[in-house]
Design a protein around this nucleic acid. Structure first.
Lengths: 214, 214
DNA sequence: AGTCGATTCATACACTTGTTTGAATCGCAC
DNA sequence: GTGCGATTCAAACAAGTGTATGAATCGACT
């Protein structure tokens, strides 16, 4: 039959994405892939080996996608870059179950880490965060404290990641999640404008009267 | 020996919080509680029954905590309420591993839901969201679309929840998380001011010139 | 002391899990 | 066709899981 190796990878990707590493059995995978139970041992050594291979696929995919969120800093001002970033990052967060399955998979990883995560973090996430830090630093104009910049980056990242598909959140407010292209665009616009306003406010705060909520 | 029932609850709370329902065995719990393996069946029927009891404890706890985040709307303006909300909500998100363990437990629930979650959502989360919607609606002053209000509430909630302790995020930026009372207060202030600025911007946008990022 | 219900205990059972095994089968070069 | 390495297969294994069982122990009341 056609390449068992590949069929296993595909099935594993689908199932791991859906349920995470621990809640998928080797039997689930081999049955979905129409392969023999022992095929996993044969082709990947063991279950974790298969998982690593899937994550490897995801890493390559994520690196590609990363590129497409980061407008080159030369020739574009920081505001443009931030808007562009959110507009291109958000859709793939929201469609995590299909195109950007890797983000969905990482959500399971976050709740229940396997030893494989570290390299992914370093290669795929950190560059994007560094990029965002640069953009926000520019938005502040004159030097702001790294703390302040970090908090703003966190605010942006938090707003985006919150839109990861999540059955639990859907329980709270069914239909809360944007679906159509237009809804997603509007949501991205919201996040960008909301954040730009927030950052500007934090920048003014630096020398304006300090408002201390008690 | 002293109340086995209670010792089981305590151990279960600690372990479920740490690892989630699936990754804790009955033997883990009974050994931690220095009780016999069969004690879980005897006192709670089965493992899920014990889990439900733990979640019941958490629900009572969360309802208490909820109260303390919601400043009465009469006698306080919306800005005050928002600042107060974040200042009191954030610390318990951040200390989720100790005082507010229920939030930590719910994170596992979110990645891997058990049948017990629904009631929790309805009783503990929805009232708080409704409250926030009211506050944000007031901040807009004149009627804004529910979509717009919902997106702002989501932005606030996202920023707060992002600070849930998370080994994965700590891998990205070690020490990113505020620890001391003062750091937490500063972070809460950031979220409140950032969000207030964002909301004001969204409110002005309604009749000002519409900025369309391309 | 004796009784009886509540609780604890050691053990066993049925089931699922990841992995191993050794034979069977396939796909080709010769 | 023959041989041979790569692959597939059914079956078994060992470890771990939640739960059930029935005897032993406890604790208070008469």
């Amino acid at each position: 039959m056609a390449d068992t190796h590949q069929r296993l990878l595909d099935a594993a990707q689908r199932l791991f994405t859906e349920r995470g590493f621990a809640k998928v059995t080797v039997r689930d995978i081999t049955s979905e892939a129409q392969a023999n139970l022992a095929a996993v041992s044969y082709h990947f050594g063991d279950k974790l080996g298969l998982y690593e291979s899937v994550l490897e696929m995801g890493l390559r995919f994520a690196l590609e996608l990363n590129e497409s969120t980061m407008l080159p800093r030369e020739g574009h001002n920081a505001e443009e870059c931030l808007r562009y970033y959110v507009q291109h990052y958000l859709p793939r967060i929201i469609h995590a179950d299909t195109r950007g399955w890797i983000y969905q998979l990482l959500k399971h990883e976050s709740a229940d880490p396997t030893p494989v995560a570290r390299r992914y973090v370093q290669q795929a996430i950190m560059p994007r965060i560094e990029y965002l830090i640069g953009v926000v630093r520019d938005l502040f104009g004159d030097g702001a404290s790294p703390d302040r910049i970090g908090r703003c980056v966190t605010s942006i990242q938090a707003q985006c990641l919150f839109y990861l598909p999540d059955p639990f959140k859907s329980m709270v407010r069914p239909g809360w999640q944007p679906h159509t292209e237009e809804e997603i665009r509007d949501t991205a616009e919201h996040i960008a404008e909301f954040s730009l306003a927030g950052i500007r406010a934090m920048a003014n705060l630096r020398r304006g009267p300090r408002v201390r909520p008690r």
